[in-house]
Amino acid sequence: MSVQEDVRPEVDAATVTRAEVCIAACADAWRGDGEILASPMLTVPTIAARTARATFEPDLLLSDGESKLIAGTWAIGETPPADAVEGYVPFRRIFDLLWSGKRHVMMSPSQIDRFGNANISALGDFARPTRQLLGVRGAPGNTVNHPTSYWVPRHSTRVFVERVDMVAGVGYDRARAVGGDVERDLDIRRVVTNLAVLDFGGPDHCARLVSVHPGVTVDEVVATTGFALDIPVEVPVSRLPTGEELRVIREVVDPRGLREKEVRA
């Protein structure tokens, strides 16, 4: 047996941008998911899902955001090749699929609390909001039916709040109160922000700091989070993308550099 040579291109850490670190952290949300539909919203998660499939998670399903499942890897903002269609998922079948549990969505909350309750609906009093947002959309159903992760392009005390104004995405304390299937299936995998990665592995499933991105301090994360985070004694630094991931991100999925518009370090 011969020792295989590692042919991955080496990574020059100095050239890796914050957005690329965020993409690797988002991609890791789908690690180990196998043959399920990965549903990213926004730019960074979309690049991340395609990169994950092109590298370490080849069995993921991806849609064109309209009604087709697409095989292969294509650039963000581009129409996928017509011969890459592998399935039909109009909105009605997206509901079927999400109710079956075989999906993992990455949404972007306007507010999220320490147990993962997330608001995309409205700010202020619901009856007459100070600011109407998107509405609950699919968040209530997504969160209680299949794994959910969140992407926050700008980590701040406005987003990470003690109490969200309207629970659209269900958090762990709410799920425990409901019990049954909801408590069993609630699975908020991670929250990736422009500064750090969080999960809900703290006491009673409260938010825990998993890693800080290179160049970010724990204090910075604490100062921009509006609730008490569970912080381990040793907080690791978020990993850099591998050479192969960087090649896919830069040359295949996002050659125009849209990722840099969504993330300001």
């Binding site: 109710w99 969160t143 209680v144 309207m166 995405g169 799920a175």
Partner: peptide, 8 residues
């Protein structure tokens, strides 16, 4: 199931 646990 959808809606349970949320503020809907």
């Amino acid at each position: 199931r959808s809606g349970l646990g949320s503020d809907v």
